[in-house]
Nucleic acid binder design. Structure first.
Lengths: 114, 114
DNA sequence: ACAAGGTACCTTGCAGTGCAAAGTATGACG
DNA sequence: CGTCATACTTTGCACTGCAAGGTACCTTGT
């Protein structure tokens, strides 16, 4: 179906924003992010590992997040990611852009003009 | 800046929806679409030829639109595109998907205002 | 102790898309 | 005739999501 493709394309670029938004609430590790994203979106967003990990590395490379190994429980090591100040700025800018974009989409594609 | 990149990524996939929406209102040719899109979005959307024409060909190949040469004025030949029934269905489905997507985005990344 | 399964992290190769840039053709204007 | 704007097309690159494959560790059952 072409619809799944549309959804895939919609997700492009927004993956970073979604990850940043979740990490802004609380530091998390990889798999936890996958679960929380699905939870927070009422099951709408389901990203795979092949999407998540490259995204985390990309965000790290760009200095928007920071990952550090931590012992979250005795004998349990997880790579916890946190948002950097630069990441917060970027997120704020993206939120603004998203708003403008959604508005413009509404203008052009939104109402079935009668 | 990374913001322009975000915008580019946001546009991905939505190009088709925007084109379909405009053609639903009225049959148009290539450059006209570029101008009308910018107009309808209050100057927000500005797509280039390298984006538009491949998109038109893609939509044609998928049977969502149909392009025919027509003489819009004496000695002026333009390739006019119209939306097919299949295109209308697709557009309706995409509008619905877009709504769900925007809602989910609001759930995860939305509550900035507090 | 050993096998089996789940969790967690990482990487590779492919497919789809926007865009800059270059190419071709035609009409308008001085 | 030369120059410019309009209109259509194509190529090559950059970026991203994802399926699939790989490694390591811990837990559970026998």
């Amino acid at each position: 179906m072409t619809l799944t493709r549309y959804l895939t394309q919609l997700l492009k670029g927004n993956t970073d924003v979604l990850i940043l938004s979740l990490l802004e609430r609380e530091a998390m590790y990889g798999h936890q992010l996958m679960d929380e994203l699905e939870l927070a979106s009422s099951g709408f967003f389901k990203i795979s590992e092949g999407t998540l990990y490259p995204a985390l590395h990309r965000l790290t490379r760009n200095g928007l997040i920071c990952g550090k190994w931590a012992e979250i429980a005795p004998g349990k090591e997880r790579k916890l990611y946190t948002v950097t100040p630069k990441g917060e700025q970027e997120l704020a800018a993206c939120r603004s852009t998203w708003g403008d974009f959604a508005t413009a989409m509404g203008l052009v594609a939104g109402p079935a003009t009668t």
